[in-house]
Design a protein around this nucleic acid. Structure first.
Lengths: 329, 329
DNA sequence: TTGAAAGCGCTACCAC
DNA sequence: GTGGTAGCGCTTTCAA
């Protein structure tokens, strides 16, 4: 049986309270006592029981990390950073993969809510209303989504889109397609908005396709539709879709970038590996994960504190072989 | 404030105990009472506090999932399956990424140990001795590693290697390289063993390279060394290294598979996307995750039960464009 | 079938 | 500075 605080107290010849203090608030205890306690604890290999602690403090030392699909290579980068930063705050990470399902998302949040101090909701698919209510019960930081003025970490997609479209325009493209991701994705809606406004401003024509799943399959499925749209370039909601397009085009013998240019978002590791490599708008995933944890921790400390802050991270177009001059018509 | 069991009891006009039973052991309570309790619970939106439950039952309803690097695309597939199966058993998943560091691994395990019922250790990097001691304290299922006769889920690497080498031999290769992964990886040691024995049996010559990190960078770094070894084929510890090799070869103007064939392990999603696509030994990741959870649950129920069972999952060589006939010399 | 009550291990408040 | 003690919310005897 693992040693409890009582065992330590007995061995050190002090009370439970003193043990507790010696470990939690070393300066409120006489050095000699502290020393005895530490020795006893070490001798017994005492590890405080976090569960018991949670029950009395109301804090669990856990954070919930919820995301739609860990198999999308965008997320592992974020998860890793979250993990690392969380550990530095002595927080454990409870992971939940919702499989892109808004109902599952809410259900998971609801079952986890009692065992975490707060949530990091990455690209949540639920409605603003539902998310707002979650945020009412528990501290929440949104990642890749904005819900009113609630705390969030976002990427500057609008600027990424501006970079992408400027790039395509400079290459001579006048008519481009946008392959939309999930309707439930806030980022998708944002990107669509930005594309429309930037394209208008630059006098480009935009063809909208999709609402496909943000997966390879989604991209492959929509490839023929894009070819039929007689555009010279296509912007995909994310790199997975972009890679699917490349694969679909390749299957049809369509040459990228000679016949059509492709741009994705996220700059996942695979983007640079395929042939031609995929031009993509990079999102600083590490920074995102770190910032998310930091904001959440801040929120946890400012108990009931002022409405949290929001962070906007810069994006950067990475030009690779999948974009090139538009064919002369 | 969230409703507690007391609130439900009061509203239903029964005792705490009855509420508890009505929810946990419905058949030990008169239907009428049960009904009242359920109604009250629903009305208050009561969700039992898992932390409190843990304290009294000693079970947390959490499992710890520990792995060396979530950014390696092999793992998300496993994680997803684990997640899904765990939910079906009403278990939450605590994730820990050790960054390939055996010390961090043990530290993480040790801090998590009180808040989980058991561990799923994926490709753990610590020593047998350390892992055995973990397994002494807490139920553990090893994934991608064998430690004595302790419960584990493994892939039949030996057979995968047999398939790979048979394939290469049939293509006329007589001298192949093996790029080893981390020294701390049990799977790496196993594969090395198998390769040696299979190659000897088939009268192939094997050149051993590496002990590189199982990443793209690892593969890229070792590419020139492989070219210098005058082999006609190379087997990489995993697909990440394999992809790195492809990339490195490409940078040197070496043609795959005309000049050299490449085989990887894991069949990660990216393997089929690159050009040429990477021949790889597929590991059934979904099944692995599911089996892991099932074994662990079984272990948790057979409290102190008989030494757990072990599962060996089949592997399958997926032949793609990165392997071809050996050049005549 | 139901209720009262004793903990699970820890923290935090209140006396000393 | 230190010790006693009352909970945190739930489960689980033990009686009734």
């Amino acid at each position: 049986m693992a040693a409890t605080i009582k065992d330590v107290a007995r061995l050190a010849g002090v009370s439970q309270s003193s043990v507790c203090r010696a470990l939690a608030a070393p300066d409120q205890v006489r050095p000699a006592t502290r020393e005895r306690v530490h020795q006893a604890a070490a001798q017994l290999g005492y590890r405080p029981n976090r569960v018991a602690r949670s029950l009395s403090t109301g804090r669990t030392g856990n954070i919930g990390l919820v995301l739609p699909d860990i198999a999308n290579p965008f997320f592992p980068g974020v998860v890793k950073a979250v993990q690392r930063r969380a550990r530095e705050f002595d927080l454990a990470v409870l992971l939940a993969d919702t499989d892109e399902d808004p109902a599952a998302e809410l259900e998971l949040i609801s079952t986890m809510t009692k065992q975490v101090d707060g949530f990091l909701l990455c690209s949540p698919r639920a409605s603003d209303e539902d998310l707002r209510s979650v945020s009412g019960d528990t501290p929440v930081v949104f990642v890749n989504r904005r819900v009113g003025r609630l705390p969030s970490v976002n990427f500057d997609s609008a600027d990424g889109i501006r970079q992408a479209i400027t790039h395509l325009a400079a290459l001579g493209h006048r008519r481009v397609a946008y392959v939309a991701g999930p309707r439930s994705s806030w980022v998708n809606r944002e990107r669509l908005r930005s594309i429309r406004s930037v394209a208008t401003a630059m006098d480009l024509e935009v063809v909208e396709a999709g609402n496909v799943t943000p997966t390879l399959e989604g991209g492959i499925a929509v490839a023929d539709q894009i070819l039929a749209a007689s555009v010279t370039a296509v912007i995909a909601f994310n790199d997975m879709i972009g890679l699917g397009l490349l694969s679909g085009f390749n299957a049809r013998g369509v040459n990228v970038p000679a016949d059509i240019s492709v741009v994705g978002f996220d700059n996942i590791p695979t983007a640079g590996l395929v042939n031609p490599p995929l031009t993509s708008v990079d999102m600083p995933k590490e920074q995102c994960g770190r910032s998310g944890v930091e904001l959440l921790v801040q929120l946890l400390n400012d108990r009931e504190g002022r409405a949290g802050s929001r962070r906007l991270l810069p994006t950067q177009l990475i030009v690779r072989g999948s974009t090139g001059p538009a064919a002369r018509t």
